[in-house]
């Protein structure tokens, strides 16, 4: 076990974990932040998407030794984020949710996307969200929600 210090949702945290434990395991099992979902565990489904220094990455492929010192934002942190909360409301409004398992990852990725492209079109949105799978196949409402969020 080693100690790791990083910023989590704008608060400094220190956790103890084995060095190759993934950020996903630490978020869910050590810090009890279960909003970040464990889907495939191998970087294919995007359910565990978090922001590291503002960029979307898979928490299941980020080992703690790589997290040390970085700035991590999870779905829980987006609740109070100006852009994140707009995305959450747009998902609610459009009903862009079925079983809900992919939703946190979709919202985190969509927030990263909109922070770089404030007026996206449908094609750009689909292209950016290609690493987030929705096995209910509810993609059209998700894409609509992202466009809706970009309109404020």
């Amino acid at each position: 076990m080693r100690k790791y210090s990083f910023t989590l949702n704008n608060e400094p945290v220190v956790v103890k974990a084995p060095p190759a434990y993934t950020l996903l395991e630490v978020l869910r099992n050590v810090l009890n932040l279960t909003g970040t979902k464990d889907g495939c565990g191998k970087g294919e489904c995007g359910a565990c998407t978090v922001l590291i220094n503002g960029k979307a990455v898979n928490a299941c492929l980020m080992i703690m030794e790589q997290v040390e010192g970085s700035d991590v934002t999870t779905i829980e942190g987006l609740a109070t984020d100006p852009l994140g909360s707009v995305v959450v409301r747009a998902f609610e409004k459009e009903g862009a949710i079925q079983c809900g398992y992919c939703t946190p990852g979709m919202i985190v990725s969509s927030t990263a996307f909109l922070s770089r492209n404030s007026k996206p079109n449908i094609e750009e949105t689909k292209e950016f969200l290609r690493g987030n799978l929705c096995r209910c196949t509810g993609y059209s409402k998700i894409v609509k929600a992202v466009i809706e969020a970009s309109r404020g």
Partner: peptide, 9 residues
């Protein structure tokens, strides 16, 4: 090469 999440890492 892959998803946004993969190419970011």
């Amino acid at each position: 090469i892959g998803s946004i999440q993969i190419t970011n890492k």
